[in-house]
Design a protein around this nucleic acid. Structure first.
Lengths: 328, 328
DNA sequence: TATCCAAATTGGATCGTTCAAGACGGCGAG
DNA sequence: CTCGCCGTCTTGAACGATCCAATTTGGATA
């Protein structure tokens, strides 16, 4: 059993003081080249690793970032979080941070969890996925000046706190434009009830693009909760009332339902979903794809900006891309 | 700005020594009832939370568990991990542990990550998802006596280390039995090449059940890598050669492909997948469902058994259930 | 050669907790 | 009455790192 290697072991081995070893690690530039080399050799020779707990006790920083893992709501969209978390872990790692998971059934308990995590683990920052109007969580964090970033815009006030988001309107606009270019004119939209920032944004992209192309969008859209069966129901409704030749959906769940409603139609009705979930890839559903890895990386960038430097970070809005498959 | 509440603050407030407060937290039984009450009141009044870093420095235990988040291979099966992680976070939380994420592109770097996590963060345990024959990762961990559990059997030697798994053979057996009960006789199987523990196990469940029912399974199975297109290809092959009336698949990806191959057949061919991914739920594919939350909970149970008590934990094999939908 | 300044290095104190050892009062046994 | 023991509580030291102030070193200058 090899005994524990501390900064003192390294210091003895390199014949310098503890502080010099610490300096090599934290402010290499103030150590003479030759000494630095000797210390670095000792570090690799002994396999020394700085003990995070001890460092944290002195500096008050844990190099830990918290992210929430959700209770797999719909399931289909859960995979978005999955991919985002993977990107986050990867980028955070490269920046010297680690990702700690937490869950909470509701906002109140989520805030209690913040309190606990900050108190016991002294977390450096939080990453929140998804935000809503009047979010109590962001308010709580902001009030206590806890560093955090959201993946999703603060719809109340865009300068409320640092955020990263994907331009949903640009996504549905691209989808709509693609369909227009393919000769479609009667392009419908199935989305969510007005009032959710994300949903309104995605509908606006479709609406404005159609309008700009000289097509009147009136009557061509439907709103409902996010589910496959609702998508199917509304698509049947649209087919009966408006005879659309193509449809853009606010999610892959809705698009999947729409696909089932148009299964045996000839000529086929084009369908484009949103989120490019594994389901879409598997069944060949065209979909708007979010750059999740990129989004995660920018979240980490913003956080390190706040934590390491003292810059006031500027929000990041990323452009989605269109994953064209045979339904479009 | 309220100043930091430490154990000393609590001690002063309750007019006892630091150590007494520590005892109330860690060995309440050795403190007199009245004193204990006074200390507990002070703790809640001040909102005291034990500093994990300081505690860790003394005890050497971080109350942190590491879990790997994978690079979303197929995408379809990624959601299994998603749900497992959520369960893990929830149960670990209840047991006083937190889940730390890590990723690694290959085994070698994953082992390097173990070393790093153990050295810098003093992780208490690891949870590995998935194992293979001759897994270098488990060997490394076992050699250093690092506590860990795998979700997935160690196929080399079932007593090599603690594990939790879902009985795949029982799952495909249940699926096959269901199809037999529905009157099917020519029930095919699409799985993975022999040699992967998981794949062989799932095929065995189908094979043995069919055999026990007096049906000869010969010729009724196909093997390939896990993908939608391969599932479709092999299903067409089976249809042409063996005229099966039903098929059990080793994954939802393969089942999805099979579904596309039988799309317009009449009478319909029954299909049952494996993993009950969101895709299956969305399109009505019957599938074998793994109790992921339960599995995660048992992983935590095993770990706390090793960490807190000193019991030698016994492996856990969970039974899957059949999610019947219209394709069966 | 003596002096001075900046760069390089050192030793002690400290973060918040638990461990190890000891102090104190009361009580029963010898 | 004294001793030892038990239950209860307290004090000092230690975990491994960084901060701070003090000290040494090396080189340039007078």
């Amino acid at each position: 059993m090899p005994e524990k290697v501390t900064i003192a072991t390294v210091a003895r081995h390199a014949r310098v003081s503890r502080q010099t070893v610490s300096n090599v690690l934290n402010s290499p530039h103030i150590v003479r080249q030759e000494t630095r080399q000797r210390v670095e050799d000792a570090i690799t020779a002994l396999g020394y690793r700085a003990n995070q707990a001890a460092r944290q006790m002195r500096t008050g920083r844990s190099r830990l970032i918290a992210a929430r893992i959700e209770p797999t709501r719909d399931g289909i969209n859960g995979s978005v979080l999955d991919r985002f978390l993977h990107g986050l872990t990867e980028t955070a790692d490269a920046a010297g941070y680690r990702v700690l998971l937490y869950t909470a059934p509701d906002d109140e308990r989520e805030i209690a969890t913040y309190d606990d995590l900050l108190g016991t683990y002294e977390l450096d920052a939080f990453v929140l996925v998804g935000t809503k109007y009047g979010d109590p969580r962001t308010a709580w964090l902001a009030e206590r000046e806890v560093p955090f970033v959201t993946f999703g815009r603060p719809w109340d006030a865009l300068d409320a706190h640092p955020w990263v988001d994907v331009d949903g309107a640009a996504g549905t606009a691209a989808a709509t434009r693609h369909l227009l270019d393919a000769g479609h004119r009667r392009i419908a939209f199935i989305g969510w009830p007005a009032g959710s920032g994300v949903g309104d944004d995605r509908r606006a992209g479709w609406h404005d693009t159609l309008h700009a192309a000289g097509v009147d969008p009136a009557g061509l859209h439907r709103e409902t909760e996010d589910s496959v069966s609702e998508g199917e129901r509304l698509m049947r409704d649209l087919l009966a009332a408006e005879a659309p030749t193509a449809v853009v959906c606010a999610s892959d769940s809705l698009a999947l339902g729409a696909l089932q409603a148009i299964r045996d139609l000839d000529p086929p009705v084009s369908v484009i979903g949103f989120d490019d979930t594994p389901v879409a890839a598997a069944i060949g559903l065209a979909s708007v794809s979010q750059p999740l890895g990129e989004a995660a990386a920018r979240c980490v960038d913003l956080l390190t900006g706040v934590l390491d430097g003292n810059q006031t970070p500027t929000p990041v809005l990323l452009a989605p891309s269109l994953a064209l498959r045979h339904t479009a």
